[in-house]
């Protein structure tokens, strides 16, 4: 008789694993490019071209980009990334459950114990 496994994801069909990893790399690459904007790119023109731009009527923009905006853009980016990746992870589970008949018995048992079955996948 099959026993449940702790990490059913490791026993998924290869195509699901590959799908997840490709999606993860694509999402991460997009976020990484956005990160280079707040970490590097916008600090290059800022001290020269935007030197006389004032935010809120008195705050020099190059200063505020480095001292405030970049930090909170970085925080926001992590939470948005987490939200996107959680959805991708949820989709992986949904794909696994869709292929229920092709899953090994121990994986099915694990998913069933966690409440993820073809009739109602949970994550």
């Amino acid at each position: 008789m099959a026993a449940p496994v702790e990490h059913p994801e490791e026993h998924l069909p290869e195509r699901h694993k590959r799908w997840f990893w490709e999606r993860l790399v694509r999402v991460t690459a997009v976020f990484f490019v956005l990160w280079t904007v707040i970490a590097v790119w916008w600090h290059i023109p800022a001290p020269h071209a935007w030197r006389n731009v004032l935010l809120f009527g008195n705050m020099p923009l190059p200063w505020y980009l480095a001292a405030f905006i970049s930090i909170w853009a970085g925080v926001l980016m992590i939470f948005v990334y987490h939200w996107v990746m959680s959805r991708v992870e949820g989709e992986l589970l949904a794909r696994a459950v869709q292929d229920w008949d092709q899953l090994p018995e121990d994986v099915k048992l694990s998913l069933r114990l966690a409440g993820a079955t073809p009739s109602g996948a949970q994550h």
């Binding site: 449940p4 496994v5 702790e6 059913p8 994801e9 490791e10 998924l12 990893w21 992986l92 114990l113």
Partner: peptide
């Protein structure tokens, strides 16, 4: 290779009994 695959994949579900035993 298996170790790297394990790192790359998310926990699909958390099975309470198995997680406790683990």
């Amino acid at each position: 290779m298996r170790f790297v695959d394990r790192m790359r994949l998310p926990e699909l579900v958390r099975v309470p009994a198995v997680a406790g035993a683990s």
